[in-house]
Structure formats: structure tokens, C-alpha cells
Amino acid sequence: MTDYRVVPGPEAYFTPSAARMGVVLPEPGEAHIEGVIVPEEKAMEYAARKLLDAKNPTLHPGPLVLWNWNEKAAKKAKAIKVLAECIPARIIPMPDYRPKYPKINPDVEINPNHPNLTIWHNKEDVCLFVGVHCHQANLSLKIIRGGTDCFTIAMCAQAGHEDAMLSFRDATAEKILRLAEWVSKLKGVPFVRPVDEKARGDGGDRYSDNVFVKLADGG
């Protein structure tokens, strides 16, 4: 167990990777907060608090959820929108990973090769990455930790990110909605899950999975 803590920077120009400093990834059902492994529900509550306490909470969806590749991506997109509305948080996309020359417009997008520009420009104090390919997320998270004081949250669909200050793993639409549910709970308002329009067929009672439940159920 390492004493190193993955905390908001600016860490240094040559930021050491958290993995090199001994931070390990969480097992399924777990998450990490600043490099310390915790049960996922604890991290959910912590992340929800961070997002609510922030002055400029911002969600950064990546190509895996911005583009309508498949049903899974579409569901995650819906869930992210619900989360953003619950907080409420701004959404600034990372549409692709090209190193854009001569510069990006930090008001409308974030780029993994210089994510600090967007963080600085928008004075983001807490941000959440979702739907970004892991190698590009690692790059972004390290640069942000190196040059900004922003608290980073990774909603990773794979094994999580050591370089985020808080990282979930195995992200699904359901998990994103659970975070939204935590936000609502802390705010003391009822949480209304979205209806899956696509699955509303004959009779309107069938839903593709348990993520999207009927509004009428109040679930």
C-alpha cells in the first residue's frame, strides 16, 4: 500500500504516473478515491458530493458516448444527460483525439493533447470523464493533474484510472444513473429515471433492461 495520494494539482511539469507511485486499480465492485480503494457505493456518494460542491462541475463525454455507435452508447448518452441535469453540470465534449492545430476552442470542446486549456478557460473545479478511450483518458488525466487544480473523476467502462482523483470501473448506463440518483438523494429531491422510448412497443410496458423504468413507477 502506497502513501502517495492522487490529489488535485498542479503536481508538476513532469507528473509521475500514479501507477508508478504505487496506486493500484480497484477490483470489480470497488472504486478508488485519491488512490485509496473503497467500495463503489462510498465512491458514488463522494463523487456526488464533489459534483454538488463544485462551482463549475463539468462532464466531458468522449467519442464512445458522443457518437451513436450502438444501443449501449445511446443509453449511456441518455444517462449522462440525466446526470448533467441532476447536478446541474455543463457538458463539454471530447469529440475526437486529433491534435488540433493551431488551437481548439476551449469554450466548446476539450482535447486530450491539451485538456488543461479547457479546464483553465472554463475554471472547472470538478470534472468527470466518460466514454473516452482509456489511453487518451490517461493522457488527459495526467496533464490535468500536472497543470491544474481540478478534481478529476473517471467513469471508466474498463478497469478504471489511477491518474483520476476518483475512478469508477465497469461503467454502464445503470452506473451513471446510480450516480445521478446519489446526486438527487444528496440534494433531497426525487430522482426520476428516463423512459426507454425505443423499447416502448405494443402495450408500452416492455423495457429493454432494468436501466430505464417507467416514469409511472416512480422508480
Binding site: 458522443l66 457518437w67 451513436n68 455507435w69 452508447a73 448518452a77 449522462i80 457538458i91 465534449p93 476552442n105
Partner: peptide
Amino acid sequence: EKIQICPEFYDIMPPEYR
């Protein structure tokens, strides 16, 4: 058909992608 933006994010995508 493959390069469609999720409708939830259409309005926040930079104009060149739209």
C-alpha cells in the same frame, strides 16, 4: 449512417462535427 451524433449531445457538439 454510422457517423451519427447521439441526439442528447447534438446541441453541444462543435459546429464542424455537426
